[in-house]
Amino acid sequence: MQLLELQRTMLAELRQPTAPEDNSAAAAYLRPGRRLSARERLGIYHRSYWARLRQSLAEDFPALRAVVGRRRFAALLDAYLIDHPSHSWTLRDLGQHLPAWLEQHREQAGRRWRAALDAARLEWAYVEAYDVAALPPIVADFHADSRFCLQPHLRLLALSSSVDELLPAVHRDGRTQPLPRLRRERVWLAVHRADDLVYYRRLDRIAFTLLQSLGRGLPLGQALPVACAAAPRGSSPESTADAIHAALALATQFGWLCSPPDASPA
């Protein structure tokens, strides 16, 4: 068998969810040993393949596991891995499609699909915020035509439950306290990195919308009305203006605003 064909055959067998001991063409290309058959030999690699990928996802998505439960989580991971095997040299990227996949596979999460989706999105944002690049922040001079790009490690998430309260609890080692109960509520969250640690910070809807609009490349003059439109019904112009100022101050304090790639150097 040519090398490429052999490798295609073997990896296809490793990716099967059923153990090769039950059904495999291993004997066609592997020699039996004195103590193990060809299928049993392939079985060692098969167990190792599945164990490694499952463990990697389990480490990255402990809140998702807490939301859907241990048994459902195990089945969900296997279904995901069949659809999305690793296409990267690093296991760090393995869960990158999980939020979008879960959106399409509601049946995998059961009753708590929305909270599960929130957890998956939050945990993938954590993975990204942990090690993506940091750009030098700018001390912004705010004009109507000012444009920014957002700090690459900043992720903005609109969630429908309080999963952000769950995450610190599932990350705590040797947890003895029961997990906090999830509440249904709108949460606008900034996931970002400071001093090499990842933090979650709840935002109000105005700040969230303003940052989102700036991140989409709108100049400040166009982003402001979009953000103001997100103010709660009945807000006074003064309270909306205060919220805008607070949002810009927060973004400056955490270094979330950077020069857009096409900006000429100051």
Binding site: M10, L14, Y45, P85, H87
Partner: peptide
């Protein structure tokens, strides 16, 4: 790895001249 899919394992080679 093959066709862009990664096993994340150190898989053995056939000891052939092609390899």
């Amino acid at each position: 790895s093959v066709d862009g899919t990664y096993s994340h394992d150190l898989l053995p080679l056939p000891y052939t001249w092609e390899a």
